[in-house]
Simulated assay, not measured.
Amino acid sequence: MDLADTPCLVTGGASGLGAATVRALVERGAKVAALDIDAERLATIAQETGCFAVTCDICEERNVLAALDSVEKLQGVPRLLVQCAGVATGARIVSREGETDLASFRRTIEINLIGTYTVMSHVAARMSALAPLDEGEQGVIVNTASVAAEDGQVGQCAYAASKGAIASLALPAARELGRFGIRVATIAPGLFATPMMETLPEDVQERLATLPPFPKRLGRAGEFAALALHIAENRMINGAMIRLDAGVRLEPR
């Protein structure tokens, strides 16, 4: 897919991996819309890049539909969807007090999995009505999982379950949407320098940076964005989950 002048949509576009993807797409000459629940950060990235910014809670279907209507009216139906919206939560199945936190589990699944599916399904429906491009391609969907989908640590059951489900979506979604010329792929980032990571103590961040075999550092958001754009441009990538992790395998704790 040629990204120049192409309508593209990024969820979670106000910070971290999403913001880096917005910047990369704008630099490539795409028409970019960014969705995020954080209105303040969204306004900042819009001012910085000139992207179309829409405040949206992806857990609310009506919000999603209204946001897509706004994007379509201004820029057209997105040909590329990159989904970076999500939360990282930590909670044990049984706490030290012997209790379970079902509310936290539900919230994580609702945002990371159901929110991702809601946006994907509605964007795919609109993509399916677009005129085909070269080789019949109509659109590309890139979802974000995590290496926790395969290497979930203690206290990550909710997060790992949500990201594992997103990873599992790629192949059946690609098989289903292939008849519309829509490709689906998933990126599973490892340890990246994002606002989520920056909430950890500095000594913890330094220790985590030593875990990858090579390069021994945290990933950069721009490296995620580069892969998302490559997936969009390379038609042979479809139905796959790609680990972007410098070879790291997370420890149990």
Rank of each mutant, 00 (worst) to 15 (best):
E202W: 05
T6C: 12
L177K: 06
P212H: 06
A193V: 11
A19W: 07
C56L: 03
T210F: 02
A30I: 03
I187C: 04
S95K: 10
R41S: 11
A167Y: 09
A30K: 05
T144N: 04
A173N: 08
L211E: 11
T194E: 03
P189M: 06
T100P: 13
A188T: 01
P172S: 12
V204A: 14
R79C: 01
I237M: 02
S128C: 07
S15P: 10
R220T: 12
A225Q: 02
A131E: 15
A167D: 11
R243K: 15
R41Y: 03
A24F: 03
S95H: 11
V10G: 00
A14T: 08
C51Y: 06
S146V: 00
A91W: 13
L191I: 11
T186C: 12
L200P: 06
E198H: 11
P195S: 06
G98T: 03
C8Y: 02
S70D: 13
G76D: 00
P78R: 05
L42I: 10
T118R: 02
A4G: 08
I45A: 00
L169I: 07
A173I: 03
L211V: 13
C51K: 04
V54C: 08
C8A: 08
V142S: 08
E137P: 00
D245C: 12
I58P: 01
E251H: 14
T100N: 15
G136R: 09
A225K: 02
E233Y: 00
S146W: 05
L17Q: 01
C8R: 03
Y117M: 14
M1P: 00
V82G: 03
A131H: 11
L200C: 04
I231M: 02
N112R: 02
L130F: 10
L169A: 06
G155L: 07
L229V: 00
I231F: 05
L3S: 04
R243T: 01
M127R: 06
R96V: 14
G12L: 03
V140Y: 03
H122S: 11
D36P: 06
E206D: 15
V82Y: 00
G115A: 08
A232R: 08
L227T: 09
A149D: 04
R126A: 10
G12P: 03
G247I: 01
V22D: 01
L130I: 07
V154W: 12
A167I: 07
L35W: 11
E27A: 14
D134S: 13
R106E: 15
D57S: 11
V248S: 04
E198Q: 15
R253P: 10
A160W: 06
L208Y: 10
A88R: 12
E176M: 11
R92F: 15
K73M: 09
G164P: 07
A67K: 08
V94D: 01
I109A: 09
T199Q: 15
I114N: 11
G76E: 02
R175D: 12
R28L: 09
R243M: 09
P212Q: 07
T49F: 02
V123R: 03
